[in-house]
Amino acid sequence: MTETISKKRLGVIAIVIKDRNESYTAVNDILHLYGKIVVGRMGIPYKDRNLSIMAIIVDGTTDEIGAMTGKLGRVRDVEVKSMLTDKDDQGDD
């Protein structure tokens, strides 16, 4: 029996919330649910266009990150793109 070890990946998730009034709470609820893999976040409200743009730095397995981005992508009026590093270095020098 072989055991698969999931390696952690570092990445950035870009989120565009097209309707701040309708979708912002749902996005924040999902980010809270996956808070253990969120390293940092920056959100910019673009009031003139009724948008919010967020950049989320994550450090987790591809399964964890994929589950989070999948849930975010199913929120109405939300677009999500992610970029993960190929490097799986977890700080062991």
Rank of each mutant, 00 (worst) to 15 (best):
R76N: 14
R41Q: 13
G43C: 04
A55S: 13
D48P: 05
T85Y: 04
G40C: 08
R41H: 06
M54K: 10
D89H: 02
L84P: 00
T62G: 15
A67K: 07
V80A: 13
D59Y: 13
D86Y: 00
D86I: 07
K87R: 02
I53R: 05
I65K: 08
G66Y: 06
N50A: 15
M83F: 03
G73H: 11
I56R: 04
T61K: 10
K47N: 07
G73K: 07
R74W: 01
V75R: 10
M42D: 01
K47F: 01
Q90P: 00
D59R: 12
K47I: 03
V75P: 02
A55R: 08
G70L: 06
M68D: 10
G70S: 11
A67T: 12
K81A: 04
G60S: 05
G43S: 08
K87Y: 01
K81D: 02
L51S: 13
D48F: 05
G40P: 01
T85I: 04
I65Q: 04
S52T: 09
G73N: 09
S82E: 12
V80Q: 12
V58C: 06
L84N: 04
V80N: 15
G73R: 14
D86A: 05
K87F: 00
V80R: 07
A55T: 14
V78R: 10
V78F: 01
K71H: 13
R76E: 13
S82A: 07
G60E: 07
G66V: 15
I44D: 03
K81I: 01
K87G: 03
G66Q: 15
S52E: 08
S82G: 06
